[in-house]
Design a protein around this nucleic acid. Structure first.
Lengths: 219, 219
DNA sequence: AATAAAGTTTAGACAAATCTAAATATTTTG
DNA sequence: CAAAATATTTAGATTTGTCTAAACTTTATT
């Protein structure tokens, strides 16, 4: 299956949006890829032709088994490159997403396998996201909960839900990284903000928008 | 300067062909890039518009200073990735050219700098070609001569002139790699073939086509 | 259930990169 | 130096991925 970079990006977006919901809307994909719904419709026809998605006019899109397989390969490459950039080239976690978006399109199984070996076959990327193995199997460590919904008081940061530079820089500034231990001091109902404390630091409050995107596990 | 991958490939080819000769022909570029002369003409207009080449209809192409600068950046990235693939991921020298052709198009100065540092700032790639530094300066170790023209009897292999898998696999099979020491036993005039000997091995003969592409330095 | 709102698709256009075939320019050669 | 050979360019078409504007479907609302 020979895919263009654009096709790969569509497959990846559909996979991402499909988590949870069954079928993905034209609009959602357009928003995710920063393009227009009409363009998505055009591409949907092509991907259907290639049997990578199921698609009926006006009724949304889902990946076929083959489509999912390809999505997982792309995600695997993306996350391995992120590990490489952080572990070997000392990039910080907010810098690597965009570079990995480009590197992920180099399709070579041999390269992917060797890169993975070189990195010690990591199972999570610098944002805490699981890395699919060569067969496309991925640990769904989604025993994780977003901080805004977690019940326990003592928590550990395990992943982030959003790769945007803005969020990651904010977390850097606050001293929040993967593995950081957090104590929930107070939850404020009126705006769903949370007051939290990190060891040896004064407590501070974060908005719902932020806490939604921090995935934690109870300690 | 925002270039497409196609534009980068044209720049790189022109740079390569420009060595020695002053102006590069439409035909030569078309052959190098495995495309048609008409396509080269079209692209020449675009690159001229962007001031990366000097071009007058029917009178060939040369890179401007800016064009050369960009070419050297691309070559730098290409050769650094080749080093990475061989030194860190254990690829062999005949496998890396095609992968590097893809990786070289990831344009990030920070990535390039860090990759170079990670590799110990190498100055030659796995085929013996010099790697331009961040300023575009490149050791012209072209005190090197092709084996078919070298005068001395005892020689060391310093580089190869052709990245094709076919040649490199041939050299692998014959035990010829960078640093291999060669003794010239005999030169045959009628077909310009050379009989050579590598330490602890029986002598063998190689064709002009091969010896042209092996760059050596006297010992 | 009819209508308004929201979402999606079609039609037609455009830019990038390519191609073929025909036209034109340059170079080589008898 | 004119004709032939070679090289280059133009004209017109194609593919991929995109867009806008208009048309159409589905869904939500009153």
């Amino acid at each position: 299956m020979n895919l263009t970079i654009a096709e790969e990006n569509y497959i990846k977006s559909i996979f991402k949006l499909q988590e949870g919901t069954e079928t993905v809307s034209t609009n959602a994909i357009a928003y995710e890829l920063d393009t227009k719904p009409a363009s998505v419709t055009d591409m949907a026809k092509k991907l259907k032709e290639k049997k990578l998605i199921d698609y009926e006019k006006y009724h949304g899109i889902t990946l076929t088994a083959e489509g999912k397989k390809i999505a997982l390969q792309i995600i695997r490459r993306h996350r391995l490159w992120e590990c490489f950039l952080v572990d070997k080239l000392s990039f910080s976690w907010e810098e690597v997403h965009e570079l990995a978006e480009e590197l992920e399109h180099v399709r070579s199984e041999k390269l992917t396998t060797r890169l993975s070996d070189f990195l010690g076959n990591p199972t999570t990327d610098p944002h805490g996201d699981p890395i699919p193995d060569a067969q496309g199997k991925m640990n769904k460590i989604r025993s994780l909960q977003p901080l805004d919904k977690a019940a326990a008081k003592r928590l550990e940061v395990a992943a982030v839900n959003d790769q945007s530079t803005a969020l990651l820089e904010f977390l850097n500034a606050k001293g929040i990284r993967l593995g950081t231990q957090i104590e929930v001091i107070e939850r404020y109902e009126f705006d769903n903000s949370v007051e939290i404390k990190i060891k040896n630091q004064p407590a501070f409050t974060i908005s719902e928008q932020v806490s939604k995107n921090i995935l934690v596990r109870p300690l």
